[in-house]
Each structure stands twice: as structure tokens, then as C-alpha cells.
Design a binder for these strands. Sequence first.
DNA 1: CTTCAGATGCTCT
DNA 2: GAGCATCTGAAGA
Length: 196
Amino acid sequence: MEILTRDFYDRDTLTVAKDLLGCLLVREYEGERLVGRITETEAYIGRCDKACHAYQYKRTNRTETLFAQPGTAYLYLIYGMYTCLNFVTEPEGEPAAVLIRGVEAVEGEAAMARLRFGKEPGELTAYQRKNFLNGPGKVCKGMALDRKLNGHDLLTPPLYVLPRDREAPAIHCGPRIGVDYAQEAKDFPWRFWVDL
DNA sequence: CTTCAGATGCTCT
DNA sequence: GAGCATCTGAAGA
């Protein structure tokens, strides 16, 4: 299974957000392979989207990564304590990205459980197992992703994406989460997810 | 199951 | 100084 190429990311952001569902996010960490199947994404498009950090091509220290070539990882700190993982999309210079909102653990579950809860998988409560990596902050905590990886090229280790290894299930879509401040853009149906 | 408050620090005005 | 692409634990229904 080959790593997704730059062509994959160098497309319309909504298309990439949908095509990422079911793909495998791979994080190599301390000699282990942590793998999660992507189950939920959101699109952010600077050209026309008030919820995007780079709305109207706004260029600051933080948003600089969004102007990088497609297939670049954009990670930032949110609410003072959580990290969000995004993949830069569209031709270079168009600031846009897909936020990874949720994954399902596929490989390296023991390491992920330790990273996320400081426990072994067998010690998790039912609630912790059900809500293992189903949020953008949880994905980053469980897969050891922090801002040191901001600007990383997703075509190379230690962080990359593999194509689907099975048929894509039905895709749902709806409004994005946590963007109520974004006026008309808050209702854009740019969140996509699949059932497990 | 639900709501709710609080944690915590970086970024931009 | 204000606001934020979130999460958790506690408390109530």
C-alpha cells in the first residue's frame, strides 16, 4: 500500500475531505506504528470561508502553513491545551485544509491508550473505549501529534496517509462543529463522516 | 443520558 | 485583553 501522493491533496478541498474517509492515518512514534482509520473530517477554505483561519487569504505567522504546498500538515494549539491536525489542500497558494476530527484505532492501540489515558487497553472503561479518538484533540493526544509536526510533508514518515484498504461506506455530511462565530459559514455542510 | 464550568496558553488586535 | 476548528469530570434527570 503506497503513501497518498501530492496529487491526492492537490484538489478541491471538499473532494479531498470526502476521499480521506476510510483512509489510514499512520504515525510512527518511538519505533511503533500507530494507525487510525479516518472517520470524520471538516473542510476549511480560505478563499470564501469565514471559519477558516486564512479567510480572505489572511496571512499571519500561524496561517503561513496553509499557504504551503498541498500535502503539508497544519497543526495548531486550540483552547490553550489541545492540538488540531489538518492536511493542506488545493494548489499551493490557495489556503485551505481538511481537519481530521476522528479516527478509529487500527494498529498500535496499546500505545494509543497509554498516550491518551496513561492506561493499558484492558483497563479502559466502556466510556473511554467508545470515545477513544472521536474528536480532533483526542486524535492528536492518542497519536502523539503536536505542533512540532506543523509544516511536516505528509508524503514522508513519521506522519503520512495510506489509501483505503476496503470499500468506502456511505458518507454523511452536515454543519461543522465549534464555528458558530463564522456567520453564514457556520451552516456550510462541510463536515463529513462515515459510520464505523 | 444531559448540561455545565473550568482548564490553559497562544494568536492577533 | 479577548477569543478560540476542545475535552473532562461532576452533577442532575
